[in-house]
Design a protein around this nucleic acid. Structure first.
Lengths: 154, 154
DNA sequence: GCATATTAGTTGCAATCGTAACTATCGATT
DNA sequence: AATCGATAGTTACGATTGCAACTAATATGC
C-alpha cells in the first residue's frame, strides 16, 4: 500500500513470530494429540526436565518467556497429573522449588523423543547452513535479551 | 533433571518462541498504549500496509501465521475504525479484497515509525553480525515453511 | 522495630481465543 | 444441471488468557 522505508519482512518481532508460531503449532499438534498437553504445560515440563536442578515458577517463566499466571496454571495442571511436586524453600517461604516426579521425568523423556524427531525433520528442511546461521543469530538475540528489560507481562 | 541427548535450548520451536515472544511483547506494549491496538490488529494492519496491493483475509493469515478467526476479528475491528475497507471480488464472491483507507495508511505510517525505532534498538543490542546471521537463518526457515504443510490451526 | 516497598505465587473476572459448525459460493464430476 | 467436495469467511460457545487485585512472606528505610 505505501512502501516507504519500512520493510515488514525485516522487522524482527513480526518475522520471528511468524516463524515461531508456524513451527511451534506443528509440534503442538503432536503432543496435544498424544498427551493432551497444552502449550504452557509442555513448556513448563520442558523447562523443568531440561534443567538439572529444581526451578521456581518465576525461573520457569523467565526461561520460557511465559506470563506468570500461565506458569502458575501449568504448574497446577502438571501437579494434578502427578508429574511434578512443589517443595517450599526453607529460607524464604514465598518460594516453591518445582521438581519432576518419576512419572514426569518419564513423560519428559517420551516427549523429547517426539521433539528430537521433529527437530531432525526441521534440520533436514532448513539445512545445516541455515540452522547454523539461526543458532548464531538466536544466541545474539538471547544475549541481548539478557541486557534488556523484560517486556511488561512476562 | 534428566539431561540425556536432548537439548531444549537447541530445540527450535521452544527457542524461537521464547525470542519471538520476548521481542514481540515489548513492541506490543508500545502500540497497545498509544493506539489501543491488539496484536492481531497490528499484524493485519502491517500485512496490508506492507503489501502493495490488496490482500484477502486468507493471505493475511498465511503471511502472518494467524488463525483465520483471529484475522476475521481483526479485520472487523479495523473496518470499524475505518482503517480498512472490503471489496468483493467480481469473479468469486467468496473473496474479499482488503485495502487500507487513507486513515489506515496514515496509522500504518505512524506505527512503522515506532517499529523502525524499535528495530534500530534491536539492531544495536543484537549487533550487525547477529542480525545478519538471524536474517540468513530466518530466510532458510521461511523457505522450508513454504515446502511444509502448514500446521493445523492456521 | 515499625512502616513501607518489593517479591512469589494465586485467583476473580472480563476479554480473547480456537474448535467446530455454519453460510455462501465456486469447481468438478457425472 | 444436480450432486458432491472444497474454499472463503463468520460466529456460537466453551476454553484459555492476562490484567488487576489479592495473600503471604521478605527486604528496606528510617
Amino acid at each position: 500500500m505505501v512502501a516507504v522505508g519500512f520493510e515488514l519482512n525485516a522487522f524482527l518481532p513480526y518475522r520471528l513470530n511468524r516463524a515461531a508460531e508456524f513451527v511451534a503449532l506443528r509440534f503442538a499438534a503432536q503432543y496435544k494429540a498424544r498427551y493432551q498437553l497444552t502449550r504452557p504445560e509442555w513448556r513448563t515440563l520442558a523447562a523443568l526436565g531440561s534443567n538439572n536442578r529444581p526451578m521456581t515458577a518465576t525461573e520457569v517463566g523467565t526461561h520460557s518467556a511465559m506470563h506468570k499466571t500461565k506458569v502458575s496454571r501449568a504448574v497446577a495442571a502438571l501437579e494434578k497429573r502427578r508429574w511434578l511436586t512443589r517443595r517450599e524453600d526453607e529460607g524464604d517461604r514465598r518460594i516453591e522449588h518445582l521438581e519432576l516426579t518419576k512419572a514426569g521425568i518419564r513423560a519428559y523423556g517420551e516427549l523429547t523423543e517426539l521433539a528430537a524427531r521433529y527437530q531432525a525433520e526441521l534440520d533436514t528442511l532448513i539445512g545445516a547452513a541455515g540452522m547454523q546461521a539461526l543458532a548464531t543469530g538466536l544466541e545474539a538475540v538471547e544475549r541481548a535479551i539478557g541486557r534488556f528489560e523484560p517486556p511488561p507481562s512476562i
